[in-house]
Every structure is written in structure tokens, then in C-alpha cells.
């Protein structure tokens, strides 16, 4: 878990997670702001030959501003990517979990 700040001002928190793609793990980062809204998602390491489009910005920006209470479902709030369906489902699930964890830690005071 990472605490992100500039000077004395808290910018938010971030955590790194792994989800299984078709055969290999996808390593990603989720960052939230102090109000527990998702700041950004980034794909840190993508190892499979197919499905790397989940790292493209137009797909990742769909998550910005979401919070743990929001529903993040592929085909509804999150658009699928043709040719990357497995990775889209895996990363969306991973983001949902990590966002819920970060929010719970922050709200319980475990991170501050």
C-alpha cells in the first residue's frame, strides 16, 4: 500500500494487485483520492500475448471517479474490449476488490 502526498497535503492512497488473465498474472495499480474516489487505474505489467488493450487509456479512464459503492460490471458501467474479454473481466474484478479494500482501510483508519 502506498500513501501519496505532496508537501503536507495528502493526495491519496494506492495499492498494487495481481489478477489472473488467461494464463498469466496481470499486475495493476489502483489509486484513490482522500474522498475515496478512484483516481486512476494503471496496468504495471501485462504478460500475455493478447488482451494488452486493457492498458489503453480510453478503457482505463472509465474507472475514474468511481467509489466502492458503485457497481462496476463489464458490459454495463465498464465497456468490454473486442479481443480482450478475459483481461477486461479480470482487471475489472481486481479493481473492484482493491477499491473496496483501500476504501475500507481508509474509512477504518488503518491508513491515513
Amino acid at each position: 500500500m502506498l500513501r501519496v502526498s505532496r508537501a503536507d497535503s495528502l493526495l491519496g492512497f494506492a495499492a498494487i494487485g495481481n489478477v489472473l488473465g488467461k494464463d498469466l498474472p496481470i499486475t495493476f495499480l489502483v489509486a484513490i483520492d482522500p474522498a475515496d474516489h478512484l483516481k486512476d487505474v494503471d496496468i504495471l505489467v501485462y504478460r500475455e500475448p493478447y488482451g494488452g488493450e486493457v492498458a489503453y487509456e480510453p478503457w482505463r479512464r472509465q474507472f475514474r471517479g468511481k467509489s466502492a459503492g458503485d457497481s462496476l460490471r463489464v458490459g454495463r458501467e465498464i465497456r468490454n474490449i473486442s479481443g480482450a474479454t478475459i483481461s477486461v473481466h479480470a482487471v475489472t474484478l481486481g479493481v473492484r476488490r482493491l477499491l473496496a479494500q483501500l476504501t475500507a482501510w481508509h474509512q477504518s483508519g488503518a491508513i491515513r
Partner: peptide
Amino acid sequence: ARYRGVDPETTQAEMQFPKSFAQMLT
């Protein structure tokens, strides 16, 4: 559209991105 991609802003359907050089070779 499958090979050249589609601007994500112009449609609400599944996103389609241009195939990369490596994907084209494969």
C-alpha cells in the same frame, strides 16, 4: 473496424483498438 479500431467516443459498443504490428504478424 476490427483491424483499424474505432474511436471509443463515437460509439457505446465494445471498444475496438487498432491491431498492433505484433498482433498483425501473429
